[in-house]
Amino acid sequence: MAFPKIIATMAGGFIFPFLLRLVWGKLCDNFGPIGGWLAAGFIVGTTWTLNHGVGLIFQSGDAWIDMAWAAGTGLFVASALSGDDVGKGIGMIINAIIGGVLGGFILYCLYV
């Protein structure tokens, strides 16, 4: 992959967790549960369009990364750097991995 595409992919991966951390909580604080729905539509929709529609993220070969990986790692690192409880985050990551493996196994069982 060429260097400009690497930079664009890293920027696309950074934008999503940055907007999540910056905007989601404020929308929920100001508008309650409706703010969460608004944040889901605006933040996820806008960054998905930038990354996949406009083509800010370049995926080549067999590598496939979902935006959830960018959100998870970005928010975990931001929490760790800001001094939040990292132990709680590690437990959530382990649970997410277990859930992903279980979900993948169930999908595999559907198509065997």
Rank of each mutant, 00 (worst) to 15 (best):
I43V: 09
Y108C: 08
S82C: 02
F42P: 06
L20Q: 09
D66V: 05
I90N: 01
I90H: 00
S79K: 10
G104D: 14
S82G: 05
M1E: 09
D84A: 05
M10Y: 10
F58R: 00
V44M: 00
G32A: 06
F42Q: 08
D85C: 05
I57G: 07
G25Y: 08
G12M: 01
A11H: 07
G13R: 01
G36F: 07
G13N: 01
G13P: 06
I98N: 04
F31W: 04
A11P: 11
G104R: 09
G25S: 09
F105P: 14
F31H: 08
S79R: 13
G103M: 05
G99T: 10
F18A: 12
Y111A: 00
G74N: 11
A11M: 12
V44L: 02
F18I: 12
I7R: 06
Q59Y: 09
G41A: 03
A80L: 01
G103S: 07
A80D: 05
L102N: 11
A70R: 03
A96T: 14
A70T: 14
G12H: 07
W48I: 15
K26W: 11
R21Y: 10
Q59H: 11
G12Y: 07
W37G: 15
K5Q: 14
F18W: 12
L81Q: 00
M67G: 14
M1F: 06
M92Y: 13
G91H: 06
G103K: 02
A39S: 09
G25C: 04
R21W: 13
T9E: 05
K26Q: 11
I94A: 01
A78E: 00
I90Y: 03
G104F: 14
G13Y: 04
I15M: 04
T9M: 00
S60V: 14
S79Y: 08
C109V: 14
D29P: 07
T49G: 04
C109W: 12
Y111M: 01
W48Y: 14
A8F: 15
G45T: 02
V54G: 09
A71I: 07
T47S: 08
A8V: 15
A40C: 13
G55C: 06
L75R: 05
A39Y: 07
H52F: 12
L56N: 06
G45E: 01
A11Y: 12
P17M: 05
G12R: 03
T46V: 15
A68C: 09
V44G: 00
G55I: 13
R21T: 15
Y108H: 10
D29Y: 01
A78H: 02
L56F: 04
I106R: 03
G55T: 12
L56A: 05
I57F: 03
A40F: 10
P17R: 05
F42V: 15
